[in-house]
Simulated scan of single mutants.
Amino acid sequence: MKNFPRLLGFKRGPLHICSVLFMILNFLLQGESSNFSENFGILWGKDQFKLSNDGQTAHLTLDRASGSGFSSRNEYLFGSFNMRIKLIAGNSAGIVTAYYLSSATSAHDEIDFEFLGNLPRKGYHLQTNVFATGVGNREQRIRLWFDPSADFHNYSIVWNQNQIVFSVDSVPIRVFKNNEGVGVPYLKNQPMKIISTLWNGEDWATDGGRVKVDWSKAPFVASYQAFEVDGCVASASSESCTGHWWDQSLFSGLSRDQLKKLRWVKRKYMFYDYCKDKSGRFSTPPPECAINP
Rank of each mutant, 00 (worst) to 15 (best):
E288K: 02
T284S: 15
I24E: 12
F49C: 11
K260T: 11
Y99K: 03
I291W: 04
M192W: 11
I111H: 06
P148D: 08
L8P: 02
P14I: 10
A222E: 06
T133R: 14
G90S: 04
Y99M: 03
H153R: 12
Y76T: 07
G13F: 00
F4H: 09
P185L: 13
E239V: 14
S19G: 14
R141G: 02
Q140M: 13
I194H: 07
E239P: 01
S238P: 00
V221E: 09
S240G: 15
F70D: 00
L116F: 10
G201M: 10
K2Y: 11
L144G: 10
F176D: 15
R84Q: 12
Y155V: 01
D203E: 13
G79W: 05
F176S: 14
S72V: 07
V168H: 12
S170G: 08
G55D: 02
R138D: 11
S149R: 11
L15P: 01
I85F: 03
H108G: 02
S72N: 09
N160E: 05
F131Y: 15
F10D: 15
R12F: 04
Y76M: 10
K276V: 02
S252F: 07
F4I: 14
G45E: 12
E202I: 08
Q190M: 09
F131E: 02
S34M: 04
K193G: 14
A132M: 12
S235L: 07
F220I: 01
G69E: 05
K188D: 15
S33Q: 07
K177V: 11
E114A: 06
I24K: 05
N189K: 15
L259E: 12
G69T: 07
G280W: 00
N200G: 03
K188A: 15
Y100L: 09
V135D: 12
V229P: 01
G201T: 10
E75F: 10
L8C: 06
I42W: 06
F49D: 01
V229A: 13
G123V: 01
N137C: 02
K2S: 13
D230N: 14
R174K: 14
M192I: 12
G69Y: 05
S156L: 04
L77T: 12
L21Y: 09
L250Y: 04
G209Q: 05
M23V: 04
I142M: 11
Q30R: 13
W264H: 10
Y274M: 00
C241W: 12
